[in-house]
Amino acid sequence: MEDIKDKNNFLRIFYTYRPVLLVLPALILFIIFFIIPVLSMFVLAFDKPVTGVLDLQGEWTLKSFLRIYNRSLYFNAAVTSVSLAALASLITLIIGYPLAYLIAKTENVTRNTFLMILVLCAMQLDMVIRLFGLMVLMGDNGLINGALMYFNIIEKPIGLMYNKLGVLVGLVQFSLPFMVLSLIGIIRGISPAVVEASRSLGATPNQAFWKIIIPLSMPGILAGTLLVFAISISSYIVPALMGGWKVMVMPLHVYQQIAEMGKWQFGSAIAVVLFCTSLLSVIVYQRVAIRIGGGRA
């Protein structure tokens, strides 16, 4: 009797909580291979740095972080990372806004879908392949220098790549689709009636644009800029190829410290700094995104 009751109890619990089985595979995967690894990386960053040793020393210290702060090599890399990402966000905004505006205001379904497919293809295509094209364009023997020399405008190739300019162009190419997609929704949400009203009150198209449309797109502008900042600062491949390891940024140091020097703790510390910088802008981004969502509903 007891057995049957227990069994029934078990079955009832099983049926009540059965839906949890749906999420269990994904949850277990994320706990083991996402939460634990990221936490252990944080732990490692605060451990005593010993070259070539991954095992936990158990001596907590801020040595690695102080080293990033004190050594100009790493401090400058952080400054370069932040300034390049900030500049990329600004340029991407200026270049991306008109395209987002065009897509948002295109009513023709076929044309709209076509433009969206172009943007999505550009976004989803492997970044290394896009950089291949950019490098053939901007290299010393590349198309731009080749054309300029062919028409005798310059005598020697001008350095467009393997410097900060090259990295910046690469970052803009990389993040432009993200900016456009962040802006489209908010621009589409601006009621044409508001613009009409300002026009009927005597505003020129220019005034209507700067005084009505731009302020109303501000949440999208902010969200897009922060998103682009977060993904630009995290990019490894763009500075590695377009900067030719001459423009040192944080992601390059992370790889170098770990893969080439075996400095696990120090590499993790740089990764933690990188993670926190990008997380900070993402948190602000989500605050903004939530406000957009709330405003719309």
């Binding site: 270049i95 991306g96 806004y97 008109p98 395209l99 505006y101 065009l102 172009l118 943007v119 293809c121 550009a122 295509l125 392949i129 896009r130 950089l131 291949f132 094209g133 950019l134 053939v136 364009l137 198309l143 803009v172 190419q173 432009l176 689709p177 456009v180």
Partner: peptide
């Protein structure tokens, strides 16, 4: 239109070059 043209050029020219 000019701005969108520039943006599309930046997005697509590298792909065409490949």
């Amino acid at each position: 239109k000019i701005g969108s043209g520039i943006a599309l050029a930046i997005l697509l020219i590298p792909v065409f070059i490949v």
